[in-house]
Design a protein around this nucleic acid. Sequence first.
DNA 1: TCCCATCGCTCAATCGTTTGACTGTTCCTA
DNA 2: TAGGAACAGTCAAACGATTGAGCGATGGGA
Lengths: 335, 335
Amino acid sequence: MTSAKRVTLTDVAKLARVDKSVVSRVINDDDRLVIKPETRDRVLAAIQELDYHPNAAARSLRTAQSGTYGLLIPDFANPIYAEIIKGAEQVAAARDTVLLTGTVHEDHPERYVRMLASGRVEGLLLASDKLSAKAIEALRHTGRPIVSVNQRVPGVERMILADDERASALVVRHLTELGHERIAHIRGPRNSDTARRRLNGYRGALRAGGLTPDPALVAGDGYTSETGAEAMRELLALPEPPTAVLVANVAAAVGALSAARQLGVRVPEDVSVATIHDIPLAANLAPALTTVRMPLAEMGRQGMLALFGEDSGSGRTVVRTETELIVRDSTSARA
Amino acid sequence: MTSAKRVTLTDVAKLARVDKSVVSRVINDDDRLVIKPETRDRVLAAIQELDYHPNAAARSLRTAQSGTYGLLIPDFANPIYAEIIKGAEQVAAARDTVLLTGTVHEDHPERYVRMLASGRVEGLLLASDKLSAKAIEALRHTGRPIVSVNQRVPGVERMILADDERASALVVRHLTELGHERIAHIRGPRNSDTARRRLNGYRGALRAGGLTPDPALVAGDGYTSETGAEAMRELLALPEPPTAVLVANVAAAVGALSAARQLGVRVPEDVSVATIHDIPLAANLAPALTTVRMPLAEMGRQGMLALFGEDSGSGRTVVRTETELIVRDSTSARA
DNA sequence: TCCCATCGCTCAATCGTTTGACTGTTCCTA
DNA sequence: TAGGAACAGTCAAACGATTGAGCGATGGGA
């Protein structure tokens, strides 16, 4: 009910019997301010008493800084973004800035341009590949810092990547150690940067293990359970089917598992399955999936740091820490 | 490279050879402005030419409106919030306002108070029960609109709820129709509003079906797979175990399923299992779970509308649309 | 004793928009 | 032909915080 109109700096100054500039400097710890302790106390008491909170708009207007950063993701339903968000939020909170997370709507790219251009957000973390080239150009044109996370985005100078090649390699090595030689790959979308890197890693690791990549053992073209199921059926229909499959992501792996089940092919007895991204779902499937944990939260963290210009290097950063193979029930020694 | 310092209304006004107030009124479609079409065209051309974007801070300062609303959730990793976010974002985008979604950190409730009090956000959608009573009181004290979604929050006047009682009832009816009579309930946390409502619905539906609720058949106290597994073990250890179980949420159901598997109890042959919230995971488990789809996106939508004051009623709103039983493989006729 | 430095503040301009009030033309109507 | 209405804008005061410059009083050193 205490619907006090609105408390401003002037109100506080009046109550504390000082100029509002003093209040402002006290709040902002301005070291050019020389002040008697008792005056400072009066100011602080007044702030307390009136429950004063600085107006964000006025502050932004004067300082040309909003203390807000944006994080663009394609879809909240995909749990890998939850991790990225967590890392980014952590850094934002520590820097006392606000993180504005939203999904990209392809139909309205100008929304994001406006947010940057109007000064509402100071910089953007791009974790989505759903933005068109011209939308990105428009974003870049605002002159505000933009950092991409988890994929290369043409035109964006700073990027934070996971070591997708190594993730694939970890799986392939695990499978070869189990005695597998016909190792297939269900790949992600052709236009996806991560999918390409995972494919590269798969091929490289095969060669490193003395095996020759067989083009017939690469199937699929998507990150959904439908494309995964379809690709699995293709592979299992081969004259000489694979004994193990590296699936590019968990959604596709879920599809692959159910396709195998429907065909009466047992996992891991008849075919081993492993995938990339250790989201909780992976552990709860039957059989529980062998996966590679990726440093998603760390990537969010580093992305945020790069936005602040607090990162070490320049250009591309590959986050290697935390990448780890998690062996569960979906892979076993070759029969 | 065109690093023009910063384009303001004054720049546009100069180029268009009018007063800046004219430009402002043109932009805001002020109907009190009378203007020659050719002048308006000059203004629009100047805006285009300079790529002018109104400064959000200045506008907020003057109008005392930020065009930003907050949505607080406990955890991005929980897919039910992805749905709520989707609905809320939709409305926000249609109203041309910005939605700021963030997770609640219990350690820093003043963060949210500050955001409201500083005028950064104009209102709050609360989808989290992680806020302490005094944090909520502090939020309320800002005098800004607050709407809770998916649960009752003491002190918050507007709330959007799903019909959790009915969801439980749908499952119980489905199970009785399959011939089950010993129907158990693995309940959610004691301090959770949704958990209580689901329990009530379960009891009510049993009675409506002519069955007497047996306290021994209610187990559990949590929404995690650990509590679900534990509760399932308890139930299966009963002298006369249930033939069907309604689990309060999917996470607990996942635990329940794996507990059953470990004990060699088959689902649905030996015991039927069903749960509430039709998230994608439910369809991908083995066996695929029978669930009740809840109107989460619709709740997000309505919550946002309530924030705008555009909702119909006052106080409590229960969203019934879209609630639907999805029968899959985890429930079958009693053996 | 005088001067200057330091202390402890105050003054006022400024950030970019919005908006109520106001001004100077035309034009129509009585 | 005077007077009011409609037209086509202009003026200037806000909104609330930040910040460089300024200014009187006190104290210390030469």
